[in-house]
Amino acid sequence: MSPLSWNLILALIWAAVTGNFSGANLLVGFGLGYLILGFALRDVPDFARYRKKVPRLFLLLGHFLRDLVASNLRVAYDVLTPTHYMRPAVVAVPLRAKTDGAITILANMISLTPGTLSLDVSSDRSVLYLHVMYLDDEADLRRQIHALEDRVLAVLE
């Protein structure tokens, strides 16, 4: 069984023992279960990897929320300023993620981050096509997407 399902079972047991199945209490149980698994089974490779993944997931969520707010402020700025400052382009960016899940999450996160909108993935999954609002420096754009991809892959693979 995977470390995640063990952790969920521990959360359910915590909720059953405390007799309170509310969302907040399940979260507490999940956190306690994570601490116990991370400490007690730190020598088991699967669990050691799991221990590192959960903080990365929260880091990813934090980055995502920050990007979402930033992108909305950017859209607000774009909408309220004259259009002739914009330099839109459709750019092909190389893609390393191979599984459906990783590509979907990456593409969704790109769509909700400032100035970029993912359009499509080439049929051989080697390239992601993006629409960008301001193309200042293509190399810089590729670097940003690369960094985001690293964070997604750190959680999923």
Partner: peptide, 10 residues
Amino acid sequence: LMRMHATTKA
């Protein structure tokens, strides 16, 4: 495409 920027994010 630029209209879709506004609708998806905002």
